[in-house]
Design a protein around this nucleic acid. Structure first.
Length: 463
RNA sequence: GGUCCCUUCGUCUAUCGGUUAGGACACAUGGUUUUCAUCCAUGAAAGAGGGGUUCGAUUCCCCUAGGGACCGCCA
């Protein structure tokens, strides 16, 4: 058997959504699992809607999630001549014919079918009509002479055998009246030329496969294997589209979801390997197979994405985490000042424990990043006379300290609690508010030691 | 409307004829704790319905119901 080759073939007519990302991931994983190649093909033949910015968004997205294509990306629009050639061969060999129906005529037929509530299927009017009857003023389209009798079976690697009546497949257009090829022609010519062995794509392409298989057979090309994976649904149970909320990668990256977490989540959405939940990139390549793909569509679950992200935040190397955090802050929040780098880095151990996302870490570390504390009036009300006294007592005590560590601070705070006849909250909350401007956040000792004695004094000594 | 596909806890799923139907997320309760969290423990939670086949069906077959996809001179 020839070397395994898969491809991901998006059209750059909108931002790639995570269903597409998952399809790409599965293709890539399958290829790598088989020591094969994974190609990226940009299907940019819709000149109206294809945009360079979307092409960039697609390649950026794949890069972000860690899916790398082998070789250069294949640009479909550059291969149009090849597609047309195949259409002409099909025509010569009698597998296709010219159809002289006008657009209006077809539209009318469709309308009538809709009114009668019967399915529209092109009536194959020109399938056997002699060319001599052709009107002079109409540019014909080329239609494929689809099988009328019998059944076809698709041996799908995920869905099993799918059987369909040939008569339900119409004589589809392969060349438009402007001479340009259509999707079903282009896709299978490209797949053939690229030596793609396994076509793994969304379930929504299943009917197309019956059309494309006929072209392969007519051209006497070796048929690739097909695997149609169930679509990802929204929480409402509908096919995910580009317009849906939380559907593109950016929707996730902007709230601080990390690529390895989303990769792992997407991998396990609709695919399983026993009870294993966490897969490194290497493990996923090693374990991936088509047998593990489920047959039913799966719904997106944000809480699971969050929890996966939390897992990676807590388990990845802190240098790596810092790099991702600093990158995230620069793009979506504010750049971490150079002089704060080391401080944030060394505080990551406690900052990350309270975070599900990079955004959470950023929020938790704002008090380090910004020297000026932003208070909200509600919190400030909690700083009453009592609290002010505790703060000033605290200031007096710490001024005596030469080592500003948890070991030294703990007895000091305990003493303060006793002295003021209060509990930990009574001391901790005012300090936390004055130091960070928030009632929530890291542990008070972590706040104190991460800020350092001088900064703590500076922030408390305001009265 | 036609064709095709799907159906195990709320969600993602395990099971490949014999299990107290397992895990993860979410949820609930309790504990640890320094706020918010984390962490630990415990709990509740599922085979759509009906027929077969079989000694035995979640698992195989059929029907019904529900859900989905496709039905472009888009890809």
């Amino acid at each position: 058997m020839s070397k395994v080759a898969t491809r991901f073939a998006p059209s750059p007519t909108g931002p790639l959504h995570i269903g597409g990302i998952r399809t790409a991931l599965f293709n890539w994983l399958f290829a790598k699992n088989n020591n094969g190649s994974f190609y990226l093909r940009i299907e940019d033949t819709d000149k109206e809607r294809s945009k360079d910015k979307y092409k960039e968004q697609i390649t950026e997205s794949l890069k972000w999630i860690g899916v790398e294509n082998d070789g250069d990306e294949y640009i479909q629009s550059k291969k149009i001549e090849d597609h047309i050639k195949v259409a002409n061969i099909l025509l010569e060999k009698g597998f296709a014919y010219k159809c002289y129906c006008s657009t209006e005529e077809i539209e009318e037929q469709k309308l009538r079918a809709k009114q009668k509530k019967i399915p529209y299927l092109y009536d194959r009017k020109w399938r056997d009509k002699p060319e001599t009857e052709a009107p002079k003023d109409i540019n014909p389209v080329i239609r494929f002479k689809s099988k009328i009798k019998g059944n076809s079976i698709l041996k799908d690697l995920v869905q099993g055998d799918v059987e369909i009546e040939n008569s339900t497949i119409e004589d589809f257009i392969i060349l438009r009246n402007d001479g340009s090829p259509t999707y079903n022609l282009s896709a299978c010519v490209d797949d053939h030329q690229m030596n793609v062995t396994h076509i793994i794509r969304g379930d929504d392409h299943k009917i197309n496969t019956f059309k494309q298989m006929q072209i392969y057979i007519a051209m006497n090309w070796e048929l690739p294997s097909f695997a149609h994976i169930p679509l990802i649904h929204t929480t409402e149970g509908k096919k995910l589209s580009k317009r849906d909320k939380a559907s593109t990668l950016d929707d996730y990256s902007k709230i601080g979801i990390m690529p390895q977490a989303l990769r792992n989540y997407l991998l396990r959405l609709g695919w399983s390997y026993k009870d294993k939940e966490i897969f490194t990139k290497e493990e996923s390549i090693k374990c991936f197979n088509l047998e593990g793909i489920g047959k039913s569509p799966s719904k997106l679950d944000m809480s699971r994405i969050l929890s996966m992200n939390e897992h990676y935040i807590k388990s990845i190397d802190e240098n790596d985490l810092y790099d991702q955090l600093s990158n995230y802050c620069e793009i979506y929040k504010e750049k971490i000042p150079n002089e704060k780098m080391e401080k944030i880095k060394s505080s990551l151990t406690f900052l990350k424990n309270k975070a599900k996302t990079l955004e959470d870490i950023y929020n938790n570390s704002k008090y380090i990043i910004n020297d000026v504390v932003n208070f909200n009036q509600e919190d400030l009300k909690l700083i009453d006379e009592n609290a002010k006294k505790i703060i000033s007592d605290f200031l007096k005590e710490i001024s005596k300290l030469d080592i500003f560590s948890r070991d030294k601070l703990e007895p000091l705070l305990q003493n303060l609690i006793k002295l003021n006849n209060t509990n930990f909250k009574g001391v901790g909350q005012p300090l936390r508010i004055m130091l960070t401007g928030s009632k929530f956040g890291p542990g008070i000792y972590d706040i104190l030691t991460s800020l350092g004695k001088d900064e703590v004094i500076k922030r408390l000594d305001k009265n």
